[in-house]
């Protein structure tokens, strides 16, 4: 049977999707920029409540996971299925660790009443409420993307095992990689803007 496929078009479709994602987060960054310019001091003080060590740790592991998924594409291009799968499993584990860290991070905020509508938070100023609102929405939407990434990795791993993805047909792995780098790209901007306000 003749196979009909157009990898370049698939990749272009993936990039178009990435653009919609960039604009989604981009608009959140615009909201952030406007409110921060209106409440610079409150944003700075509220930002100091965030855990920089945990944020930095998550940044580092997310960057490592970007490398492992890129390496898994190299492996499959070289025909090394086993290494490609191992690297993808490492990426998957890192994604889960990222989410677990996020769970503890959010958990401690909830504990202190800084959750949206939380008692402690509502007693603070307008700027602080806005900062934490943006913090939860932006890291929340980002975390949903990580969760979707986990699902994609599991799917790609199963396809790799069944040899549906192989040395000459790996567009699923490539597009999943592109998606994962997008998640990393967004975090690269979220991290300094939320955790590192001076």
């Amino acid at each position: 049977m003749i196979e009909h496929r157009d990898d370049l078009a698939s990749k272009m479709g993936m990039w178009l999707f990435i653009f919609t994602e960039l604009l989604l987060f981009g608009m959140l960054f615009v909201v952030y920029a406007v409110y921060r310019s209106m409440h610079p001091e409150a944003f700075k003080l509220a930002s100091e409540e965030l855990d920089v060590v945990l944020g930095t740790f998550n940044t580092v592991i997310l960057l490592i996971s970007s490398m492992t998924v890129a390496m898994s594409i190299t492996s499959i291009q070289k025909g090394n299925k086993k290494l490609a799968m191992t690297l993808l499993i490492i990426t998957l584990v890192i994604a889960v660790v990222f989410l677990v860290n996020k769970y503890f991070e959010w958990g401690s905020k909830f504990e202190y009443g800084f959750n949206p509508g939380g008692e402690e938070l509502l007693q603070l100023g307008h700027g602080t409420i806005l900062f934490f609102g943006l913090y939860f929405v932006m890291t929340g939407i980002h975390a949903i993307h990580i969760l979707i990434g986990v699902g994609l990795f599991i799917y790609v791993l199963l396809q790799l095992r069944k040899d549906k993805i192989h040395q000459t047909d790996y567009i699923w792995l490539e597009n999943t990689g592109l998606y994962w780098h997008l998640v990393d790209l967004i975090w690269i901007f979220l991290f300094p803007l939320l955790y590192l306000i001076h």
Partner: peptide
């Protein structure tokens, strides 16, 4: 459709890219 020739990025390059990103993160913090 025939495949266009693809560029394979070496593992070594990817490790260097990661190192650059980590150094920039450290500077940023």
């Amino acid at each position: 459709m025939s495949q266009e020739t693809t560029h394979i990025v070496s593992y070594k390059t990817q490790i260097f890219v990661l190192l650059a990103l980590l150094v920039l993160t450290a500077i940023s913090v």
